[in-house]
Each structure stands twice: as C-alpha cells, then as structure tokens.
Design a protein around this nucleic acid. Sequence first.
DNA 1: TCTTCTTCTGAAAGCGCTTTCATACAGAGT
DNA 2: ACTCTGTATGAAAGCGCTTTCAGAAGAAGA
Lengths: 338, 338
Amino acid sequence: MARNRIRLSEVAREAGVSPATVSRAISQPELLSAETLARVRRAADHLGYRPDAAARALASGRSMTIGAVMPTLDNAIFSKALQAMQAQLSGDGYQLLVASHDYSKAAEAECIRTLLARGVDGLILVGAERIAEAAQLLSQSGIPVVMTWCAPEGSPSVLVDNEHAGLLATRHLIALGHRRIGVITGATRFNDRQRGRYRGVRRALEEAGLTLPPALACEQATTLAGGRMGCAQLLDLAEPPTAIVGGIDLIAIGCMVEAQARGLAIPADLSVAGIDDLDMSAHVSPSLTTVHVPTARIGAEAARMMVAILREEPGPTALTLPVDLIVRRSTGPAPGRA
Amino acid sequence: MARNRIRLSEVAREAGVSPATVSRAISQPELLSAETLARVRRAADHLGYRPDAAARALASGRSMTIGAVMPTLDNAIFSKALQAMQAQLSGDGYQLLVASHDYSKAAEAECIRTLLARGVDGLILVGAERIAEAAQLLSQSGIPVVMTWCAPEGSPSVLVDNEHAGLLATRHLIALGHRRIGVITGATRFNDRQRGRYRGVRRALEEAGLTLPPALACEQATTLAGGRMGCAQLLDLAEPPTAIVGGIDLIAIGCMVEAQARGLAIPADLSVAGIDDLDMSAHVSPSLTTVHVPTARIGAEAARMMVAILREEPGPTALTLPVDLIVRRSTGPAPGRA
DNA sequence: TCTTCTTCTGAAAGCGCTTTCATACAGAGT
DNA sequence: ACTCTGTATGAAAGCGCTTTCAGAAGAAGA
C-alpha cells in the first residue's frame, strides 16, 4: 500500500471542512449541502484523493469485497460465470476475491477460511456439498452465502435443475429410438452437479422401461481427454451403446473425437449429446446436441442476489434458471430405425 | 466483516501476554521464546482466533493481496494463467484480486485504479500497452508491476516471443510449399500480443521472398466465431489462400470448422495453423498444428516473480519463456506439391 | 421575541492490528 | 562486583477512515 498517498484529512484541510465531512462526501453525499459537497469534491479531485480501502474496511466493518470459490477457472463454464459475476459486482462497487480448489473438498474449506479471514462481505460458492468444517466456518461467519448450480432448500441460491438437464438429453435420445444408451459423467463422489445429471439420465431410462447396465455408465475427468477415454471404454464393449450422454459438453465432444478417430460417423453410427452448451459446441463438427445451461446468467444472478442481500433489499432469495434442449447434428435416429 | 470475532487482545489476555507478543507470534515467531510462542499458539487455537486482514493491512501497509488485470476470463489462455497464478500465490500467503476489462483500454485503466485503491501490494498485467492515465497510475503507486506476454525492455516481466511464434507457424507452412498464405488475427490495435504474432508472419513471408496481399490479412474477434468469419472472407476471394495462420488457436479452429462446413478437406485443400496450443487443439479433428505457448507457466512465473520482488529477493526480473512449433494433422503440403 | 424543529457540520472515539521505543533480565567479560 | 551485550517482552502511538453524539445555524410556528 502506498504510504505517500493523499489522506482524507488533507482533503479536509484543502476544502476547509472537517474530516467527517469529507467522509460523508464519499459515502453519504445526500447528507451534505450542495455547496459543501461541491467544495469537497473539487478539493478531492484537485489533490487526486483515493480513499484507502483497508482503512475504510476496518472502520466501517464492510470490505466491499465478495469472495468466489470455484472448482477451477480452467473450464469455460466457471470462468464465464466468474466473468459475469465480476461485471455485475463491479457495477455495484464490489470487488471479487477469487479462489479455486480443483475439486478438492479440503482445499475448498481452506479457500473459505482464507476468504473469511480477508473479511469478505459475502461468499459465492459452487454446489451444496462441503465438508463439515467448511459448513461450520460459513455458519459461524454470519456473512451471506449464495450457492450456485446446486443448493439445499431454503438457502440463497441460483440453481439449475441438473436432473432435468440429464432427463432432457436422455429423453431426446430415447425418442430417436436409442435403446442402448451410455453415460459418461465426471466424478460424482464430490460433485453434486454431475450426480444430479446422472440421476436425470437414469430417470429418463426408467420412464422408458430401459435399464442402465453398469458397464454403460462410467466416470471420467471432466475434460475432453476424459470424454475420449470414456468413449473408448464404451465402444470397446462387446455390445457398445448406440448413443452416449456426456455429463458436460467437454466430455461429449471428447466422445465425438474418439468415435470419429475410430472411423465412426456421427450421428449415423453413434449419437452424442452433452450438457452445458459451451460456445464451441455449436461449432464442432457435427454441431453438438446439448442441454443449454445459462452459465453466465448464473454468475450474474448470483452476484445480483448477493448485492441485494447485502443491501437488505427484498426479493427472491432462490432462483432456478431454466435449461433447455438444443438439438443439433450430433444426434440422429438409432441405427436400423432411420 | 464479522464483528463478533475473537480479537488479538483477547488472545493476549488468555495467554497472559501483551498484544504485541501475540502480534509477533503471528508475523515474526522467531522473535519469541519457544515457551511464549507455544502459550500464545495454544490460546489462539483454543479461542479460534483469526486475524483481521483489514486491520493488518492498515497497520502494516501490506495487504498480502496481488491484483491481476486480464483482458477476459472467458478464454482458456487467461483463465489458465490465472489459475496457475492463484495456485502459486496462495502458497506464499497472498491472495489474488481479479479484474477483467474485455479488451478495453479505458476499462483496463479503471481496473487498475480500483485495484490500487484496494491497496494491492503488486499488480500483474497482460501486455505492455496501456493508456497514459493507466501508466501514470502505475508509476505513482510505487508498487511492483509484473507484465506478462509482452513488456517494454527493463520492466519486470514474463514474456513469450510472440513474433517468433508467428514466424515459426508461417515458416512451417512455407516449408510445406505454400505460397498464398492468409492470416487472421485478433484486433491488433489494442493488442500487442496479436501485433507481435502478425509481425512474425510477415517476417517469415519476407524471408521467403513472398508478399502478403492486404486481402489475405484480416482481423476478427479472438473467438471461434471470429475464425469462421475470417476464414469465410478469405475463402470467398477470387484467389483464396492454400494455408491460413490463426493469431490464436480459437481462430484457427474456427477456420477449420468453416472450411469443413464448405466441404473442404484439411489439410488436403487447406492447411491451418494456430498459436497457443489450447488443450482442445490436440483433440479437434484433424488435430491442430500450432505453436505452443506455456500459458500456465506464464501465470506461475509471474506470480513467483512478484513474490520475489516483494520479498526483495535477488533474481532475474525478466523471463522469456520458449515457444515451439507442434506439428499435427491440420497442415500438409500445398495442393499440387503433394 | 422565544421556542421548536430541521438541516448541516465538527469533535472525538474508536476499528484491530503493527511497530517503534523502552525496559528488564540473563549471561559474558573484566 | 560492575559494566556490556543481547534477547525477550511490554507500553503506547498510530495506520486512515467511519460514525456517534452534540452543537450551530437557520426556518418556522406561537
């Protein structure tokens, strides 16, 4: 922190008012007479005054900082949400403090601890599931928490119905006549989003009286490479599936790449559907049928909700954003039913 | 900020020492006797004491916070660098304060202003070019700045040789016999990285005695869609190029998608090369020939350098990371030279 | 003219920590 | 025994701002 900066007291002297008045000019200008306000502003501009955030935070008990804890930044769905959060928050004078934990629940707790120590005014988290220590830190802290993607009933949240997303993708494949449908998800153990999507897939199959043989379901890293590996595994089965649902688009695209590398035509030999609707999904070839998840809006709405809560504005404190099926070229009739 | 937190003075009372001693136990434990230190630690653990970051920042003049100003988070190269920075910094007890400006120089200056007001101890920036106002803010602030990707001589930086990257990609195409080579870059006006790459392309062409007709060079958004549009533009020429260099992989991949959508075979009808080496570039079909840029390492090294500067450790203050050509399947001999 | 409000401004007490300076004490040297 | 170090701790003064409380000044009502 630069120690040679102009201080509030110097502005006060320059403007011929007390420090208290300068402080009010910054945070509660409506309390001052127009004339005084103008004088203070002129002095502040003239000296190039910038309030010291640490001092303000200490004196006021508010840091104007929101913490965001994400699994990773290295995945468009999260970096996009973050980008939207940041844009929304900075419009309201807040700043984002970012931490990521690479899908480790212990690291997540550590992130939360660090951000709390930084005195964030609120915390935006991904998913509902965390270790007891983290949950305790949160409840002790007394600051508002907004959860995204998944959340328990009753807590402030911006959600998507992951189960419904899985359901939509799978129903679409069933409607196309597919009966052997495979599913590749990310690790479900520490990831309630993937778990919900997987549940949706199963429910759609049950609805249609179909079963999901264990061999047709596998878990992989939530990356393109993971998708390739999962697809390879399914295609190597004695009875490979005619369609695959990927728990996220990255996995689905990995499937397509692997299938094409093996000389299969998509969708003639294999249909592939994803969930997320990344930018690139419309551009891969063939374009990917997927379930659109409004990632950026999740970020923006979470930020908006956080600010509303901090300002104690009334308003809905739980929001579920719609997901919808986007049919493109990567899915088609099951072989033999064209 | 929670106001019901345990304070340092309470720990002091519990441990039967002065507040100064507790403070030293936190930041300069080597000054205390083993016995006192243990007593203070026990008391702190027992009460669940967490120091208040704002108060520490105010009293010490150090916020233990580093600001990072990125063009966007919605591009893997930056989110990956950020992820690496964050991992590196948190190991050293620093936290990242992130801001993004969507390639607007005015917004960038505003980001810098905001982060400085937050009292960051250092600033990591992308690119060397910024408006005068921003440059002035930086020099006035007196805090260390590390620039990444591009930087003027003499300032602390972690660079890649963008010109060399453009050169490598283009030389490779020339070696394959291509003579009409098109180039699609991001806007070069406010982006010194893209400008450097473009320069490299031109230099390679000049070396080979080739020219770059204006029609074969175009600027587009640094997105997949931008690549598609640029490619469409080049392919619609009376004499389209036989090879295209994309200023970033995203553009190159967009080129491939567009060319394939028009029924062209890659690389038989058109060769495409990118620069960056995104994860996905190895997995698109055909896999993309590109110049590897060590994005994550840029982030990690910038963070490391920043900490070293803050600790006044000696060490190199400018680092240039190597780029190298990765030949994959998207480039091949020029038509008629197979 | 004298209250009674209202509106605006100032004085001063912190916010929770760090850090300088001073002090106390133990051991070493003479 | 007496100074001289050096080490371990404490007292107290801030860091730069916010906010409570009180007071001044002017407007309005009686």
